[in-house]
Amino acid sequence: MHRLFVALRPPPAIRQWLLGLMGGIQGARWQTDDQLHVTLRYIGEVTTPVAEDVAVALGTIRAAPLTLRLNGVGCFDKHDRPNAVWAGVAPHEAITALHRKVDQALIRIGLPSEGRAYLPHVTLARLPRSAGPVSGFLADHAALAGAPFEIGHMLLFESHLGSEGASYDAIGRWPLRS
């Protein structure tokens, strides 16, 4: 089985800037450079033939390169407890349109729709139950506003879960072009 997701990778300078923001939440598991991405579509566990179909479907998508910027921070909650902090990605329209194209291509090969609202973001940290409060980090970085950056391709990643968290391998790359 292959645990897959489709994502965009910010350029190295943006990733370095994000790494410099990390800190200030006791017990947080901060992401590494290799883990920083913007998920377009989580796929989950699939067999090798389905993974091959995913690759073919992604190759059919036509979309122009994106100009994005980081904008604000937030956190996801699970059972009324923060479990991740993130940096937002703007503008929403272009990246949301690409998300829909990816979702539709995967639906055409028989995968279910993602089914949840899409919020473009870069996860900065995972928060175990023992993590300290996030309010200080969120307040300190509420006005986060990054320089625009261009994304010229999307990637298919395979995720491997381990005792230190997830590691990701890019197993496919498709250029964004009109």
Rank of each mutant, 00 (worst) to 15 (best):
A142S: 14
G110Y: 10
P82D: 01
P11Q: 11
E52H: 14
H2L: 00
F76H: 01
T60W: 13
A143Y: 14
R41G: 00
A63W: 01
A55M: 07
T48S: 05
R116M: 02
D77F: 15
A63C: 09
I43R: 00
L19T: 11
A64M: 11
G136D: 12
S167A: 14
L156R: 02
A166C: 13
E93Q: 13
V89D: 03
D169F: 11
A87L: 06
M1V: 06
L36A: 06
G172E: 04
H37A: 06
W86N: 02
G88R: 10
L127H: 04
L138Y: 07
D169V: 09
L144Q: 07
T123R: 00
P120S: 12
L21K: 09
D33Q: 13
A147G: 08
A28F: 09
A125V: 04
V122L: 12
P91R: 12
Y168G: 00
E52V: 13
T32M: 14
L8E: 05
R29H: 08
T67M: 05
S163N: 13
E93C: 11
G27I: 07
P11F: 10
R62K: 13
V89N: 02
R41D: 00
K101S: 05
H99V: 01
T48C: 03
H92P: 00
Q35V: 05
A117W: 03
L156I: 04
R126V: 01
A7M: 08
H92M: 02
F149C: 11
L40W: 00
G20Q: 13
T60N: 11
P148D: 15
E150D: 12
G165E: 14
D33H: 12
P82M: 11
I61W: 06
L127E: 01
V38A: 05
I95V: 13
R62P: 00
G74I: 12
F5C: 05
V54M: 03
A7E: 08
D33G: 10
I107V: 13
D53T: 08
G165C: 12
I107P: 01
V56E: 07
A84C: 12
F149S: 08
A51S: 07
V54W: 00
E45T: 08
D77I: 12
R62G: 04
L155T: 02
L119H: 06
D140I: 11
V46E: 04
D80T: 09
G110K: 05
A117C: 03
